[in-house]
Design a protein around this nucleic acid. Structure first.
Length: 316
DNA sequence: AATTCGTGGGA
DNA sequence: TTCCCAAGAAT
Protein backbone atom coordinates (compact mmCIF):
# COMPACT_ATOMS: atom_id res chain seq x y z
CA UNK A 1 0.00 0.00 0.00
CA UNK A 2 1.61 3.20 -1.25
CA UNK A 3 -0.10 5.31 1.39
CA UNK A 4 1.53 3.30 4.15
CA UNK A 5 4.95 3.71 2.54
CA UNK A 6 4.45 7.47 2.24
CA UNK A 7 3.47 7.78 5.88
CA UNK A 8 6.44 5.69 6.91
CA UNK A 9 8.72 7.93 4.87
CA UNK A 10 7.28 11.10 6.39
CA UNK A 11 7.77 9.77 9.92
CA UNK A 12 11.34 8.74 9.11
CA UNK A 13 12.09 12.20 7.73
CA UNK A 14 10.68 14.00 10.75
CA UNK A 15 12.98 12.06 13.06
CA UNK A 16 16.09 11.44 10.95
CA UNK A 17 16.11 14.11 8.23
CA UNK A 18 19.00 16.58 7.89
CA UNK A 19 16.73 19.50 8.74
CA UNK A 20 19.51 21.96 9.48
CA UNK A 21 21.06 22.10 6.00
CA UNK A 22 21.12 25.82 5.16
CA UNK A 23 19.35 25.37 1.82
CA UNK A 24 16.49 23.65 3.66
CA UNK A 25 15.95 26.40 6.20
CA UNK A 26 15.44 29.12 3.61
CA UNK A 27 12.72 29.83 1.09
CA UNK A 28 14.95 32.13 -0.93
CA UNK A 29 14.80 30.65 -4.47
CA UNK A 30 18.31 31.87 -5.35
CA UNK A 31 19.86 30.22 -2.28
CA UNK A 32 18.05 26.98 -3.09
CA UNK A 33 19.00 27.19 -6.76
CA UNK A 34 22.67 27.85 -5.91
CA UNK A 35 22.78 24.80 -3.67
CA UNK A 36 21.28 22.60 -6.36
CA UNK A 37 23.89 23.70 -8.90
CA UNK A 38 26.82 23.34 -6.50
CA UNK A 39 25.62 19.93 -5.36
CA UNK A 40 25.53 18.46 -8.88
CA UNK A 41 27.99 15.53 -8.80
CA UNK A 42 29.43 17.02 -5.63
CA UNK A 43 29.20 15.83 -2.04
CA UNK A 44 27.25 17.80 0.57
CA UNK A 45 30.28 18.05 2.83
CA UNK A 46 32.36 19.82 0.18
CA UNK A 47 29.67 22.38 -0.67
CA UNK A 48 28.72 22.98 2.95
CA UNK A 49 32.21 23.41 4.37
CA UNK A 50 34.05 25.20 1.58
CA UNK A 51 31.89 26.85 -1.09
CA UNK A 52 28.26 27.65 -0.26
CA UNK A 53 28.69 30.39 2.33
CA UNK A 54 31.68 32.17 0.73
CA UNK A 55 29.79 32.35 -2.57
CA UNK A 56 26.70 33.82 -0.92
CA UNK A 57 28.83 36.33 0.93
CA UNK A 58 30.41 37.48 -2.34
CA UNK A 59 27.10 37.31 -4.27
CA UNK A 60 24.26 37.81 -1.75
CA UNK A 61 21.55 37.99 -4.42
CA UNK A 62 21.00 36.59 -7.90
CA UNK A 63 21.00 40.17 -9.15
CA UNK A 64 24.58 40.50 -7.88
CA UNK A 65 25.49 37.54 -10.10
CA UNK A 66 23.70 39.14 -13.05
CA UNK A 67 25.75 42.31 -12.61
CA UNK A 68 29.07 40.49 -12.17
CA UNK A 69 31.89 39.43 -14.48
CA UNK A 70 32.25 35.72 -15.19
CA UNK A 71 35.84 35.83 -13.91
CA UNK A 72 34.58 36.84 -10.47
CA UNK A 73 32.08 33.98 -10.41
CA UNK A 74 34.77 31.55 -11.51
CA UNK A 75 37.02 32.74 -8.69
CA UNK A 76 34.38 31.73 -6.16
CA UNK A 77 33.99 28.42 -8.00
CA UNK A 78 37.75 27.72 -7.91
CA UNK A 79 38.37 24.19 -6.69
CA UNK A 80 34.75 23.07 -6.95
CA UNK A 81 35.11 21.61 -10.44
CA UNK A 82 32.75 21.26 -13.40
CA UNK A 83 33.25 24.93 -14.20
CA UNK A 84 30.57 24.97 -16.87
CA UNK A 85 28.21 25.18 -13.91
CA UNK A 86 29.63 28.59 -13.01
CA UNK A 87 29.47 29.73 -16.62
CA UNK A 88 25.83 28.63 -16.87
CA UNK A 89 24.93 30.17 -13.52
CA UNK A 90 26.33 33.47 -14.73
CA UNK A 91 24.57 33.17 -18.10
CA UNK A 92 21.30 32.28 -16.39
CA UNK A 93 21.52 35.34 -14.16
CA UNK A 94 22.01 37.56 -17.20
CA UNK A 95 19.25 35.82 -19.13
CA UNK A 96 16.54 36.34 -16.49
CA UNK A 97 18.03 39.58 -15.18
CA UNK A 98 18.50 38.27 -11.66
CA UNK A 99 14.93 37.11 -11.20
CA UNK A 100 14.31 33.36 -11.20
CA UNK A 101 11.18 31.91 -12.80
CA UNK A 102 8.67 30.40 -10.38
CA UNK A 103 7.90 27.06 -12.03
CA UNK A 104 9.85 24.06 -13.28
CA UNK A 105 9.09 24.36 -16.98
CA UNK A 106 10.49 27.90 -17.14
CA UNK A 107 13.47 27.01 -14.93
CA UNK A 108 14.24 24.26 -17.42
CA UNK A 109 14.82 26.91 -20.08
CA UNK A 110 17.80 28.31 -18.20
CA UNK A 111 21.31 27.04 -19.01
CA UNK A 112 22.67 24.54 -16.49
CA UNK A 113 19.22 23.52 -15.26
CA UNK A 114 18.13 20.07 -16.36
CA UNK A 115 14.96 18.21 -15.54
CA UNK A 116 15.91 17.00 -12.07
CA UNK A 117 17.37 20.33 -10.97
CA UNK A 118 14.31 22.20 -12.29
CA UNK A 119 12.06 19.90 -10.30
CA UNK A 120 14.22 20.24 -7.20
CA UNK A 121 14.24 24.03 -7.24
CA UNK A 122 10.52 24.23 -7.92
CA UNK A 123 9.60 21.65 -5.28
CA UNK A 124 11.82 23.20 -2.62
CA UNK A 125 11.20 26.87 -3.33
CA UNK A 126 7.65 26.84 -4.67
CA UNK A 127 6.16 23.53 -3.45
CA UNK A 128 5.48 22.39 -7.01
CA UNK A 129 4.51 18.71 -6.95
CA UNK A 130 7.30 17.17 -9.04
CA UNK A 131 9.75 14.35 -8.24
CA UNK A 132 13.53 14.69 -8.55
CA UNK A 133 15.88 12.06 -9.94
CA UNK A 134 19.37 12.44 -8.53
CA UNK A 135 21.92 9.75 -7.71
CA UNK A 136 20.29 9.07 -4.34
CA UNK A 137 16.78 8.69 -5.70
CA UNK A 138 18.03 6.58 -8.58
CA UNK A 139 19.64 4.06 -6.25
CA UNK A 140 16.47 3.81 -4.13
CA UNK A 141 14.27 3.32 -7.20
CA UNK A 142 16.61 0.71 -8.67
CA UNK A 143 16.26 -1.31 -5.50
CA UNK A 144 12.65 -0.61 -4.59
CA UNK A 145 11.43 -1.73 -8.02
CA UNK A 146 14.29 -4.23 -8.57
CA UNK A 147 15.43 -2.43 -11.72
CA UNK A 148 18.83 -3.59 -12.91
CA UNK A 149 19.30 -1.52 -16.05
CA UNK A 150 20.43 2.10 -15.79
CA UNK A 151 17.53 3.34 -17.91
CA UNK A 152 16.76 7.03 -17.47
CA UNK A 153 13.25 6.82 -18.95
CA UNK A 154 12.30 3.85 -16.83
CA UNK A 155 13.64 5.56 -13.71
CA UNK A 156 11.64 8.74 -14.36
CA UNK A 157 8.52 6.62 -14.69
CA UNK A 158 9.37 4.92 -11.41
CA UNK A 159 10.04 8.29 -9.80
CA UNK A 160 6.51 9.48 -10.59
CA UNK A 161 5.09 6.15 -9.45
CA UNK A 162 6.60 6.36 -5.97
CA UNK A 163 6.18 10.14 -5.61
CA UNK A 164 4.02 11.60 -2.83
CA UNK A 165 2.15 14.52 -4.40
CA UNK A 166 0.93 15.67 -0.98
CA UNK A 167 4.38 16.65 0.29
CA UNK A 168 6.75 17.52 -2.57
CA UNK A 169 9.29 19.26 -0.33
CA UNK A 170 9.43 16.63 2.38
CA UNK A 171 9.26 13.69 -0.01
CA UNK A 172 12.15 14.84 -2.19
CA UNK A 173 14.33 15.87 0.75
CA UNK A 174 13.57 12.60 2.51
CA UNK A 175 14.53 10.60 -0.58
CA UNK A 176 17.94 12.25 -0.71
CA UNK A 177 18.48 11.63 2.98
CA UNK A 178 17.48 7.97 2.65
CA UNK A 179 19.85 7.67 -0.30
CA UNK A 180 22.82 9.19 1.47
CA UNK A 181 22.21 7.83 4.98
CA UNK A 182 20.37 4.50 4.59
CA UNK A 183 20.20 3.13 1.05
CA UNK A 184 23.99 3.22 0.74
CA UNK A 185 25.72 2.02 -2.41
CA UNK A 186 27.99 -0.51 -0.71
CA UNK A 187 26.45 -1.14 2.70
CA UNK A 188 22.68 -0.51 2.66
CA UNK A 189 21.01 -0.39 6.08
CA UNK A 190 17.76 -2.09 5.16
CA UNK A 191 16.83 -2.74 8.80
CA UNK A 192 16.19 0.94 9.44
CA UNK A 193 14.76 1.81 6.01
CA UNK A 194 11.18 3.11 5.82
CA UNK A 195 10.86 1.43 2.41
CA UNK A 196 11.68 -2.01 3.75
CA UNK A 197 8.13 -3.36 3.46
CA UNK A 198 7.65 -2.64 -0.22
CA UNK A 199 11.25 -2.92 -1.45
CA UNK A 200 11.59 -5.62 -4.10
CA UNK A 201 15.36 -5.50 -3.98
CA UNK A 202 15.95 -5.86 -0.26
CA UNK A 203 16.92 -9.55 -0.49
CA UNK A 204 19.98 -8.61 -2.56
CA UNK A 205 20.22 -4.83 -2.83
CA UNK A 206 23.75 -4.90 -4.22
CA UNK A 207 22.37 -6.28 -7.51
CA UNK A 208 20.72 -2.91 -8.15
CA UNK A 209 21.70 -1.05 -10.13
CA UNK A 210 23.93 -3.10 -12.41
CA UNK A 211 27.58 -2.07 -12.02
CA UNK A 212 28.89 0.23 -14.70
CA UNK A 213 31.25 -1.23 -17.26
CA UNK A 214 34.56 0.19 -16.13
CA UNK A 215 36.72 1.70 -18.80
CA UNK A 216 40.46 2.11 -18.53
CA UNK A 217 41.42 5.70 -17.86
CA UNK A 218 43.95 6.93 -20.45
CA UNK A 219 47.06 8.88 -19.45
CA UNK A 220 47.91 12.14 -21.18
CA UNK A 221 51.54 13.20 -20.96
CA UNK A 222 52.08 16.91 -21.28
CA UNK A 223 54.83 19.50 -20.93
CA UNK A 224 54.04 22.55 -18.82
CA UNK A 225 56.33 25.55 -19.28
CA UNK A 226 56.38 28.29 -16.68
CA UNK A 227 57.55 31.42 -18.53
CA UNK A 228 59.12 33.74 -16.01
CA UNK A 229 60.60 37.21 -16.25
CA UNK A 230 61.68 39.31 -13.29
CA UNK A 231 58.84 38.86 -10.79
CA UNK A 232 56.15 37.96 -13.32
CA UNK A 233 54.77 34.73 -14.76
CA UNK A 234 52.94 34.11 -18.05
CA UNK A 235 49.48 32.53 -17.86
CA UNK A 236 46.70 32.09 -20.41
CA UNK A 237 42.96 31.93 -19.97
CA UNK A 238 41.54 28.70 -21.36
CA UNK A 239 39.12 29.13 -24.23
CA UNK A 240 38.34 25.46 -24.78
CA UNK A 241 35.50 23.62 -23.03
CA UNK A 242 37.83 21.84 -20.62
CA UNK A 243 38.47 24.11 -17.62
CA UNK A 244 36.92 26.93 -19.63
CA UNK A 245 37.67 30.39 -18.28
CA UNK A 246 40.32 29.23 -15.84
CA UNK A 247 43.88 30.55 -16.03
CA UNK A 248 46.90 28.29 -16.29
CA UNK A 249 50.49 27.86 -17.34
CA UNK A 250 51.28 26.96 -20.95
CA UNK A 251 50.88 23.30 -21.87
CA UNK A 252 52.37 21.44 -24.81
CA UNK A 253 51.98 17.91 -26.09
CA UNK A 254 55.74 17.62 -26.41
CA UNK A 255 58.81 19.69 -25.68
CA UNK A 256 59.57 21.82 -28.73
CA UNK A 257 63.09 22.86 -27.72
CA UNK A 258 65.41 22.06 -24.88
CA UNK A 259 65.34 25.50 -23.36
CA UNK A 260 64.35 25.89 -19.76
CA UNK A 261 65.13 24.03 -16.58
CA UNK A 262 63.30 20.93 -15.41
CA UNK A 263 61.55 21.77 -12.16
CA UNK A 264 59.64 18.57 -11.40
CA UNK A 265 56.44 16.81 -12.34
CA UNK A 266 52.80 16.63 -11.34
CA UNK A 267 49.95 14.18 -11.85
CA UNK A 268 46.30 15.07 -11.76
CA UNK A 269 43.35 12.70 -11.86
CA UNK A 270 40.41 13.85 -13.95
CA UNK A 271 37.14 12.03 -14.44
CA UNK A 272 38.11 10.56 -17.79
CA UNK A 273 41.92 10.77 -18.01
CA UNK A 274 45.07 11.12 -15.95
CA UNK A 275 47.37 14.06 -16.58
CA UNK A 276 51.10 13.47 -16.16
CA UNK A 277 53.13 16.58 -16.78
CA UNK A 278 56.77 17.59 -16.58
CA UNK A 279 57.25 21.15 -15.42
CA UNK A 280 59.91 23.41 -16.97
CA UNK A 281 60.84 26.95 -16.00
CA UNK A 282 61.99 29.23 -18.80
CA UNK A 283 63.27 32.75 -18.13
CA UNK A 284 62.30 34.96 -21.05
CA UNK A 285 60.60 38.20 -21.91
CA UNK A 286 59.05 36.72 -25.04
CA UNK A 287 55.33 37.14 -24.76
CA UNK A 288 53.48 34.04 -25.91
CA UNK A 289 50.36 34.52 -27.92
CA UNK A 290 47.35 34.55 -25.62
CA UNK A 291 49.47 34.92 -22.50
CA UNK A 292 49.48 37.69 -19.94
CA UNK A 293 52.06 38.48 -17.25
CA UNK A 294 51.18 38.36 -13.55
CA UNK A 295 53.04 38.75 -10.28
CA UNK A 296 52.62 36.09 -7.65
CA UNK A 297 50.04 38.15 -5.74
CA UNK A 298 48.14 38.94 -8.93
CA UNK A 299 47.88 35.22 -9.65
CA UNK A 300 45.98 34.82 -6.39
CA UNK A 301 43.18 36.90 -7.88
CA UNK A 302 42.78 34.50 -10.82
CA UNK A 303 40.89 31.22 -10.89
CA UNK A 304 43.28 28.29 -11.45
CA UNK A 305 42.71 24.56 -11.75
CA UNK A 306 44.04 22.10 -9.20
CA UNK A 307 46.83 21.04 -11.56
CA UNK A 308 48.04 24.61 -12.02
CA UNK A 309 47.99 25.13 -8.27
CA UNK A 310 50.30 22.13 -8.01
CA UNK A 311 52.63 23.80 -10.51
CA UNK A 312 52.48 27.01 -8.50
CA UNK A 313 53.45 25.08 -5.40
CA UNK A 314 56.50 23.69 -7.23
CA UNK A 315 57.69 27.22 -7.99
CA UNK A 316 57.42 28.37 -4.39
C1' DA B 1 23.16 7.84 -27.26
C1' DA B 2 27.56 7.72 -25.46
C1' DT B 3 30.99 10.94 -23.95
C1' DT B 4 32.65 14.91 -21.71
C1' DC B 5 32.96 17.68 -18.19
C1' DG B 6 36.83 18.40 -11.71
C1' DT B 7 37.67 17.43 -7.38
C1' DG B 8 37.86 15.11 -3.20
C1' DG B 9 35.50 11.89 0.23
C1' DG B 10 35.56 7.45 1.90
C1' DA B 11 36.17 2.55 1.90
C1' DT C 1 47.06 2.74 -2.76
C1' DT C 2 43.45 2.33 -5.71
C1' DC C 3 38.95 2.51 -6.78
C1' DC C 4 34.20 4.17 -7.08
C1' DC C 5 31.49 7.95 -7.50
C1' DA C 6 28.82 12.14 -5.54
C1' DA C 7 21.78 16.74 -4.99
C1' DG C 8 23.64 15.93 -13.57
C1' DA C 9 23.77 18.73 -17.75
C1' DA C 10 25.48 19.65 -22.21
C1' DT C 11 27.17 18.03 -26.33
Amino acid sequence: MLNTIHNSLQRWYEVNGRHNLPWRTTNNPYKIYLSEIMLQQTQVKTVLERFYFPFLERFPTFLDVAHSDLDDVLKMWEGLGYYTRAKNLHAAAKQCQGILPTNASELLELPGIGRSTAHAISAFAYQEALPILDANVKRILHRYFAIEARDEKQLWKAAYELFDVRYPFEYNQAMMDIGSLVCLAKNPLCEVCPFEQGCKGKVSPLLYPQPKVKKIKPTRKRIIVVYKHNDKFALYQRKERFLHGLWGFMQYEELENNEGKLLGHITQQYSHFTLQAEIYVFDTDYVNEGCEWFTRSEIDLLSLSRADHKVLKLIY
